[in-house]
């Protein structure tokens, strides 16, 4: 048996299973999206693109779409910014390996927490009456602040939790990447009279461009799957202030109306939009690295 055949044969079962699972659910979603099925009744009929056309007139859908885009932007930019700033700060100030390792270990803990646990911890921290954050705000004369009940603060407050979990994790990755860089270009920059921030802005971070783009993509994909965090912390509220597309699809399809065809149409649309967006970002990223 040739090596190539062996590889093909051993890969087929796993890839077959994964492909079946992915394709069956996508096919199922497309099938549902052109019907008018609900959970209340057993009968249904073909309605064509009716669900999709209704979506385009649904204000709540556009609100959810807007929330999703804002969520994506805040969490991706916030995570990467926090990670870059913290990694550079630790790289420049903490020189002892022992302290660095302790910090890295501490920074890994948040991402190891189950999402639901993290969500509950922060719900308590944010609580207007019991929360430690409001206690601290009270000390400086602010508040109590309704972090999760104030529509203009709620989405950002939840995003902070996501950035806390992933930003610290990415800090560890970036710090390790900075440590692997050759020392000489940094020293050459020092001799070229570059200040510390200039060394990182013009030398080290550009040298890490490839890994930074990969991290951004990973975080962008991860941010799409934030259902659990938002669901536990606000449930999409107050009102629809934190309702993202996946939350709205869940509310429509399972929780409230049981209108699974409508929810399926939303999922299919979400799938198309995100696939297109990521292909464009991927291509742009590749071009930029070269």
């Amino acid at each position: 048996m040739t090596r190539k055949r062996f590889v093909t044969l051993t890969l087929i079962p796993a890839i077959g299973l994964l492909a079946t699972l992915a394709l069956v659910s996508i096919a199922g979603a497309i099938w549902f999206s052109v019907m008018n099925r609900t959970l209340r009744s057993a009968d249904y009929e073909f309605v064509g693109l009716h669900n999709f056309l209704r979506l385009l007139r649904d204000r709540r859908f556009f609100n959810a779409l807007e929330n999703s885009i804002i969520w994506e932007a805040i969490t991706v930019i916030g995570t990467l910014t926090l990670a870059v700033l913290l990694a550079v700060l630790i790289f420049e100030t903490v020189k002892k390996p022992l302290w660095r390792n302790l910090i890295c270990f501490a920074f890994l803990v948040p991402v190891l927490l189950p999402r639901v646990a993290a969500a509950f911890i922060w719900r308590f921290l944010y609580s207007p009456s019991l929360g430690v954050i409001n206690y601290l705000c009270g000390l400086v004369g602010i508040g109590p602040v309704e972090f999760l009940a104030n529509p203009s603060l709620a989405l950002i407050s939840v995003a902070v939790v996501d950035i806390w979990q992933w930003g610290l994790f990415f800090t560890v990755i970036l710090l390790k990447l900075l440590e692997t860089l050759p020392r000489e270009p940094i020293e050459a920059a020092k001799l070229d009279s570059a200040r510390t921030w200039e060394i990182h802005a013009y030398v080290t971070l550009p040298m890490l461009k490839g890994p930074l783009i990969s991290l951004t993509l990973v975080k962008a994909v991860e941010s799409l799957r934030s259902f659990d965090l938002i669901f536990v912390m606000t449930g999409g509220g107050p009102g629809t202030a934190t309702e993202t597309l996946d939350l709205y699809a869940y509310q429509m399809g399972i929780n409230m109306g049981g209108r699974i065809s409508y929810a399926s149409a939303m999922s299919v649309l979400l799938l198309i939009v995100t696939t297109m967006a990521f292909v464009i970002i991927w291509k742009a990223g590749k071009k930029w690295t070269n």
Partner: peptide, 17 residues
């Protein structure tokens, strides 16, 4: 280093890639 008025050439060249 930047204020000493020295310039250095490294064994590994140390160019900004």
């Amino acid at each position: 280093p930047g204020e000493r008025g020295v310039a250095m050439v490294f064994q590994s060249y140390a160019l900004y890639p």
